[in-house]
Design a protein around this nucleic acid. Structure first.
Lengths: 238, 238
DNA sequence: CGCTTTTTTGACCAGTTTCAACTCAAGTGG
DNA sequence: CCACTTGAGTTGAAACTGGTCAAAAAAGCG
């Protein structure tokens, strides 16, 4: 059966797998699949949505990565978050129906687009879908908490160290845990995200290499000593 | 009818007002009121809950204020957020059933305690309750976004200015908008929240006074020139 | 292979942290 | 009632981190 096959290996169907009751009749399943546009391709730099526009969609990253950024009325830009495969973009916006930030692809990527009003209607029929939504939101809040912790660290190296640890934990939750990985974003993006200058990010990378915590070749990072890195991330001293 | 009177003026019943269908039968209403403990008093410094403990409650601030803080495994403490009347504490934790941070009263306060599993069961019967939950979460995410924006500002005065603006907007949404208000938290709390040293917070206050943006007497703040303050908050320069 | 963009490095200066001393208000107990 | 203690908040001086500007090196890209 084609539908089962599709449900077993595509990221957007994590949703389906976790929230649709197993005894769901075929016609309902069809309806569920209808509210999801699967595997929409996005080129590097292409926008998922613009800031301050109407929206009624959630996006699930399938492959690649995205960033969300917020432009203040005075023109300063701030990178809010990065999104990796399996993560959901737009949770903060669909409640209001307006985007609070814009989202861009950091590389050639695939994403699935979920029509939120339809999902909302569907929640009424399937209570477990509601629990799932809440769990998604709860996870998103918890994840933002971690980010806030990182940004409020005082030393630049601590922030970068903490950022790398978090990033590593996020990719290795899906992949097998390997100590090396590829960063999809520019140093400028990291700098904006962490509230630092680009040059400081670069220097902090050098410092982490000098202390033997990591190795790097361009955007490819290898964690050599996770414990040392964690110490650095948690040291209140500069 | 006693129940209607209670529902009309207590903060926790914002929940009830917004999410319980108007034609709700009396026996259901009774059940709903049963899952909320109203007006629990907390002394200054008393904990709502501790970090890394099991939880199944949401809290709505009725009067006073609270802070949430996270203690890292290495002992450093970070103030995550402050909560004012009408705001909900614990949204990030109930999904997992474990607290990610601890919450303390900043002054003598009243809070309402909602049993989450019961609320969750109730969601199945009342779909609008589900929409309300999502709206709550969406708001919480948006609010965290604003905080993240503030913390990632580079200059200390900008952070403090932005913090005061946000705080002011939060209290004056319930009160009539007056330009002066009382901060319930210590300078240390503000410093931890903004990722600064206490002395820097103090000096930043002085700077805001020198530039004629605000006036202060201890923890009582008066905003003199909101536009100037906003400029300061949005200036990328130090 | 030239071009642009990204990243790194150096030097200098400004802002923040740190440490220390001090003020102020509130609470304690003699 | 007053000395004493305690904690919060402020202020000053010195050290140092990180921002800024400038320029070079490296990496992408047509």
């Amino acid at each position: 059966m084609q539908k089962n096959k599709a449900a077993s290996n595509c990221v957007e169907c994590v949703l389906a797998k976790q929230c649709v009751p197993s005894g769901m009749p075929a016609n309902k399943l069809f309806r569920f699949e209808n509210i999801v546009q699967t595997n929409i391709p996005y080129k590097m730099g292409e926008a998922l949505f613009q800031q301050h526009t109407e929206t009624s969609f959630l996006y699930v990253v399938k492959t690649g990565s995205f960033k969300t950024k917020m432009i203040s009325p005075h023109g300063t830009e701030h990178v809010h978050n990065f999104f990796l495969p399996g993560e959901v973009i737009g949770l903060d916006s669909v409640g209001l129906g307006m985007t609070l930030n814009s989202a861009d692809a950091l590389e050639a990527s695939l994403a699935c687009k979920i029509d939120y009003p339809s999902l909302r209607m569907l929640r009424k029929e399937f209570p477990t879908l509601s629990d799932f939504s809440v769990k998604l939101y709860s996870t998103a809040l918890a994840s933002m908490s971690r980010v806030q912790n990182i940004i409020s660290l005082q030393s630049a190296s601590s922030r970068l160290a903490a950022f790398l640890i978090l990033y590593h934990s996020r990719i290795s939750s899906s992949n097998l845990q390997s100590s090396s990985f590829q960063l999809p974003m520019t140093r400028q993006d990291i700098a904006s995200h962490l509230g630092l200058a680009v040059e400081t990010v670069s220097r902090s990378f050098s410092k982490l290499i000098d202390t033997g915590c990591i190795n790097k070749d361009g955007r490819k990072i290898q964690i050599l000593e996770l414990k040392k890195l964690e110490q650095l991330a948690n040291s209140s001293a500069r």
